[in-house]
Structure formats: structure tokens, C-alpha cells
Design a protein around this nucleic acid. Structure first.
Lengths: 202, 202
DNA sequence: TTCTTTGAACTGACCAGTCAGTGCAAAAAC
DNA sequence: GTTTTTGCACTGACTGGTCAGTTCAAAGAA
């Protein structure tokens, strides 16, 4: 990579980082381009030199962030498979990977959840694509688990995948927002227990 | 109730209904007071006659909506207890009640999830109170279940409650947004299966 | 020379909140 | 029974401010 494009890349990254926290805190519309530029330490003109519009900056942010998440989920699943682990172990590893991701990028997660179920917004189609990528990783592991008999063939794959993702997402955001004192291991243990059905019974 | 105050109440209700769908679709900042007034079929001045500000309208909306939700969850739990059901059955009934609520007020749920984990917003303290009310209902049932030996005493009550609420919330929103063809029974069955630990195994 | 960034000034659309005034139903006065 | 008054609910044009996006000359970097 030549120096110029890496210089540009550095500017873009600074803008992503500034935008993601501001938008997570305040929402898209309430965040001004002037604020983003100031937080990133660049001039306003630079924002428009690097991105077509505020909306485009946001859409690229979404793509970038979900790309990181799916890569991390897939890596967790693949690694478990490579070690000869079961599919349930793979799901457990993915829960862990999800928690680590949210711990590292809480602002992005917050913003993603806030936008995901909205309708009639400019970036709706971007989100749809990007969501499907993430959920598909979980669905694949569920499907494999059913195929090899490890999971009940009566489970509803798309709904169960959505529920699992939701469970992790909401538990993690709650942890970050309202229960900061808990460790990631506490949260992982609670979710793992639900996944393994070790909630009811003694 | 005299004609005047019932007239006022009707206007307020129209404003709630208009605001909830618009804000769910577009977010708080992107929704203008003019839009809300137009959708409600009243003049802009009427909004300010009935509410101190746009923010206050929104806060009252939040209180109103979460009030409905907690009432419905509590009713489900109480009814199960009255019929001599177990705590796990009560949790199951609450999942059902949550789904029914979301099915009936999808816009409100959307808006609640979008705002819940934001920080630095004017209505943050309102949300904190209102969230705690809702989660507390689930925590109570979990605590009772642990006390009578129905649930493992190793579960982490606050985290498990958050995870359960998240599971229902996200699965239901996903159902509404991306899997409309499924029936409420399908969704309930999938979530119930997770709650009962009937996912893994044959 | 070429690419990137700066920074400040500017435009025009948009929007929260205001306020002087209207309509109307019920109470008060006669 | 009719007229007058009261005050609540509502109206919509208007104001002051904000913000996305533009422009551009100049500077810095490679």
C-alpha cells in the first residue's frame, strides 16, 4: 500500500471512530458533521473530501463494523471445528466471540441495534444485507448440528438463530450499560447455561 | 368525565399514536413536530398546548408504553400462579405475553430498543426507571423459582433476566421485520424450546 | 507536479418553539 | 328564553437558530 492511500485510510479510520461513538450516543440525525470532524481532529472539508455525504460515511461504517463481527464469529466457529469440537461448543465459542466483540466495540453494537429494525431509512437496504451475513453464520452452525444429530431436528433454525443472537446482543448491552461490574466470564456463564438448558432443574 | 377533558385526552392519544410510529420509523431527531401534528390531524400549536416540548411528549410516550408492557407481564405471571402453575410455566406465559405485546405494538417496541442503550440523551433517567420496572418482573419470577428449587440456584438472576428479555425482544422484532409469515405460535415454540433446554440432544 | 488537507465563509433549507387570535360550549346575567 | 361572558382547546404564520453541504485559496506532503 502506497503512502498516499494509507494516509487517506488513516483519515477515514479517524472519522469512523469519531462518528461511531457520537452516533451511538446521540443518534444519526442529532450528530452533526462539524462534531464528527472536530472529534476526529480534521477539518470539515476533509470529511467531504473523503466521503460523498454524511449518510455515505455512516453506511460505510455499518459495512465495516459488521464485517469485523462476522469475521470474528466465523473464526470462532472454524477454530472449534478445527479442534474437533462439537457444534454446541462452536455455538458457545461464538457467544464468547460476540461478547468480546461487544466489549471491544460497544458503541458500534449500540448503533447497530438502534438502527436494525427501523424502516424507511436511507441505509435500510445496506442493513438488510449486512444483518443476513451475520445471522447466516449462526444458522450454518445450527444446521450442521441438526444434520449430525447433535441438535434436535425440531428446532426452527431461523427463529432460533435470531433468538440466540438477540440473547447475546441484549445481555451484553445490558451488561455494558447497567451491570459494568460483572466480568465477561460471568456473562458468558449465564448465557452458556441458557444455551445448554441448565436453567431449570437442579 | 366532562367533555373538555375527554376531548383533550382524545387529542393526546392521537398525538401518541402519531408520534410512536413516526419515531419508530425515523428516530426521534429525524421526526419533526410538524409531521407528528399532521399525522395526528391537529395543528402544531396543539402539540405545544398539550405537551411542554417534543422531548416531554416522547417521555410520556415511553412511560405509557412500558406501563402497558409490565402490566401485561405481571398479569401473565399472576394468572399462572393463580392456576397453580410452576415458575417455569410462568416464564413461558410471560414469553407469550411479551410476544403478544410486541405483535400489538411493534412500533413502540422498536423505539424502546433503539433508545434503551443510548447514553447522554435527555430521557435517559426516565428510561432507566422504566427498564428496571420491566426487568424486575422477570427477576421476581426467577428468584421464586430458585427459592422453591424449581430453578438451579447457580443461575445469575440479573444476567439471566436480561438475557431472557433480550431473547424475546430480538426474536420478536426479527419476526416482525424479516419473517412476517411465521405465526406467533412458531415464535413462541422456538423460544419455549430454548427456555426448557430442549435444543441440544435428540 | 499531484494528491490531500485546511479553515473559514457562505447558502439555503429546515425546524423547535412562540404567540396573537379564533371557535365554541357551558356558565352567568338579565 | 335570550344575551353576554368566560375560558378552554386549538390554530397557523412567524422567528431565531441550526446544520448539511459548497466553495476556494492556500498550504503541506510525497
Amino acid at each position: 500500500m502506497d503512502t498516499q492511500s494509507s494516509r487517506r485510510q488513516a483519515t477515514r479510520t479517524k472519522l469512523y471512530e469519531a462518528a461511531v461513538t457520537l452516533i451511538a450516543e446521540q443518534g444519526f440525525s442529532a450528530t452533526t458533521v462539524d462534531e464528527i470532524a472536530e472529534r476526529a481532529g480534521v477539518a470539515k472539508g476533509t470529511v467531504y473530501y473523503n466521503f460523498k455525504s454524511k449518510t455515505e460515511l455512516f453506511e460505510e461504517l455499518l459495512r465495516h463494523g459488521v464485517g469485523l463481527l462476522t469475521a470474528s464469529l466465523r473464526a470462532a466457529a472454524d477454530e472449534t471445528a478445527a479442534r474437533g469440537g462439537t457444534r454446541v461448543q462452536a455455538l458457545d465459542a461464538m457467544i464468547r466471540a460476540g461478547l468480546v466483540f461487544i466489549d471491544r466495540y460497544p458503541a458500534f453494537t449500540q448503533l447497530y441495534v438502534a438502527e436494525l429494525w427501523r424502516t424507511n431509512r436511507a441505509w435500510q437496504s445496506t442493513l438488510l444485507v449486512v444483518r443476513q451475513e451475520a445471522v447466516a453464520v449462526v444458522e450454518t452452525v445450527l444446521r450442521e448440528g441438526v444434520a449430525n444429530g447433535e441438535l434436535s431436528d425440531e428446532i426452527d433454525i431461523p427463529l432460533t438463530a435470531a433468538a440466540l443472537v438477540g440473547m447475546v446482543l441484549v445481555a451484553a448491552l445490558d451488561w455494558q450499560a447497567f451491570q459494568r461490574e460483572r466480568s465477561i466470564d460471568d456473562v458468558h456463564a449465564a448465557l452458556s447455561r441458557l444455551l445448554h438448558g441448565r436453567v431449570s432443574g437442579r
